[in-house]
Design a protein around this nucleic acid. Structure first.
Lengths: 348, 348
DNA sequence: CTGTTAGCGCTTTCAG
DNA sequence: CTGAAAGCGCTAACAG
């Protein structure tokens, strides 16, 4: 029923070994033979059996990309960039690699499951994107898994994620702390002293680093922080909306709201507007990431631009060994403060 | 070096077959034996070899999800819903399936490449999302490929994509034509007679259907259309921005702009605002899809809501054979008109 | 309920 | 440059 390599060999009057060699293009084959084989492949409409090939060669063309939330453009942009560097020719068997993205939903359990699945498939490389969860037994299990993957020859790259010690994983980390600090310094420079902060989920590294940067700026300027000014939520719009309402309830005198990311910031804007406050006249708002929609929000959003696509592309090239890993296996990627319409001098 | 099933069998003092059986859980095994095997698996830190397993069983746990643009939440939401129905237990070997999303970038060539790659891997199912390209040799090649996949036992489901005749693929189609028609009828009902239309890329089915719906409404109301009122672009914000500037240049008397989707509509809003026009007082704007950000745009966007998550979930269940396919293999999913702040009576 | 026995389809030395 | 042969690690009858 299904046509195998042996069928192709028979039709091209060569041995299976030869067919394999032309298909993989990793061994000298006479031009005339190659053509004959290719012709047979075409006529028979032959499709290589991936599992058989992977089994025999003990490697595969699968490359996994793990993201926390596939519906969030933050990850979409990174994943897209990674794929563009991976999808191209360069793999074994036919030249193409199967770059696939796996949606973990931010859950360490699912992350672990996907890593195991990828390990089973003997993936050629794995790229983990976005912040990690730092606590709980899962965190250690994930580190252990990364180590095993690396030991088994799978290339492991972290993109927008802090380094994982003792795992041999290459890390391209965003300087979330520094970016957040710059952003809050900007607000303080404008005269703000009462700043609300909408943080992401508690246990994530990204959340912690951004919050720390914010507090560093506050401390450096001698601004005392009120515990009521920090609220935790998720990295989405709705969360920003709700958190802002909560902040306003706790302290209506706030003059600025700093959000964990741009989506949250837009939710914050909506909540402020509905509460009858103007942006930035009454309250300034700032986001993080500089996703495409942030420029033409109304008013346009002050935020920190992260070079998502560049970082993703670089991670992809490193995963494909087309670019050398950074010295020490760790690179820190800085963000750039984008001052726009949503931030201004405080009212009153 | 790497531990195999035979090693586990030796340690648990059973045959390899038995180990396989407990791992796959598809065959009766004595509880005591099972425990012994599981213990050995754990102690040896054994990981199933996916390729070997797939080769022997002639199937795999891979499920492919093809999307046009992974950075677009439209696809992210669908993909996420599909994965949530697939990722769960239910596969062979260990219970988990590897649901992976492949980013085609809207290119038929890459779509074909991914389908071939998935075919190689003997994927259990493939879900194609979003509009298709209808012309060119690639279109036929893709149909042929889908047929072959189905013949080889891979379940093929189309989600938000028109049916593919003679391919045995199940289709969950969005009623783009009907939704677009309703939307334009709404605008006409408000009194608009000079409507600009920003269409998507020329050759896509989604583009064509939405445009046709728009024109149907126009024709039904006896509104004559000026060819200058239609501009083609991409499905993104920037495209909406540029197209709107172009429309305004061609005919400054337009009172409404209908966009191919919500992202395009937001770009249109930005362009209008920069041109000094108020929404909806001077120009009404309408989108399509009702993505999450559309409600709290300013003003909130009049659009057509597509039940993206529901459709994705259903596609996922059908792909997993957990839900019966619709009669005839085709289901049409309607959109719902959402009238919001961006549309109003025409000026003057 | 468990063991034995054949392969699944391909890659890869090792010869020629 | 090409062929022969020996597995890769697992599953699936088939017996017991």
């Amino acid at each position: 029923m299904t046509v195998t390599l042996a069928d192709v060999a028979a039709r091209a009057q060569v041995s299976p070994a030869t067919v394999s060699r032309v298909l993989n293009g990793n061994y000298p084959v006479a031009a005339s033979t190659r053509e004959r084989v290719l012709k047979a492949v075409d006529e028979l409409d032959y499709v290589l059996n991936g599992p058989a090939s992977s089994l025999a060669a003990a490697t595969s063309d699968l490359v996994g990309i793990l993201v926390n939330d596939i519906a969030d453009p933050f990850f979409g942009i990174i994943a897209s960039a990674i794929q563009s560097e991976i999808g191209g020719p360069g793999g074994r068997a036919g030249g193409e690699r199967l770059a696939v993205v796996c949606n973990t939903g931010g859950s360490p359990e699912r992350e672990l499951t996907y890593l195991t699945l990828l390990q089973r498939q003997r993936a050629a490389a794995v790229v983990l994107t976005g912040g990690a969860v730092e606590e709980g037994p899962q965190a250690a299990a994930i580190a252990a898994k990364l180590r095993k993957l690396a030991d088994a020859g799978t290339r492991v790259v972290l993109c927008g994620r802090p380094p994982a010690p003792d795992t041999r994983a290459i890390a391209l980390t965003f300087d979330n702390r520094g970016g957040a600090r710059q952003l809050t310094e900007h607000l303080i420079g404008l005269g703000h002293r009462r700043l609300g902060y909408i943080a992401g989920p508690e246990e994530r590294t990204t959340t912690r680093h951004r919050l720390e940067g914010h507090r560093e700026a506050l401390a450096a300027a001698g601004v005392e922080e009120d515990p009521r000014w920090t609220v935790h939520g998720r990295y989405d719009r709705r969360s920003g909306y709700e958190a802002t309402l909560e902040l306003l309830r706790r302290d209506p005198t706030l003059t600025a709201v700093v959000a964990a990311n741009d989506s949250v910031a837009l939710g914050a804007c909506a909540a402020l507007r509905e509460s009858g406050m103007r942006i930035p006249e009454d309250v300034s708002v700032a986001g993080f990431d500089d996703l495409p929609f942030s420029v033409d929000a109304v008013p346009s959003l002050t935020t920190v631009r992260l070079p998502l696509a560049d970082a993703g592309a670089r991670a992809g090239r490193i995963a494909m060994s087309r670019e050398d890993p950074p010295p020490g296996g760790i690179a820190t990627i800085r963000g750039e403060l984008m001052v726009r319409g949503s931030s201004g001098v405080p009212r009153g």
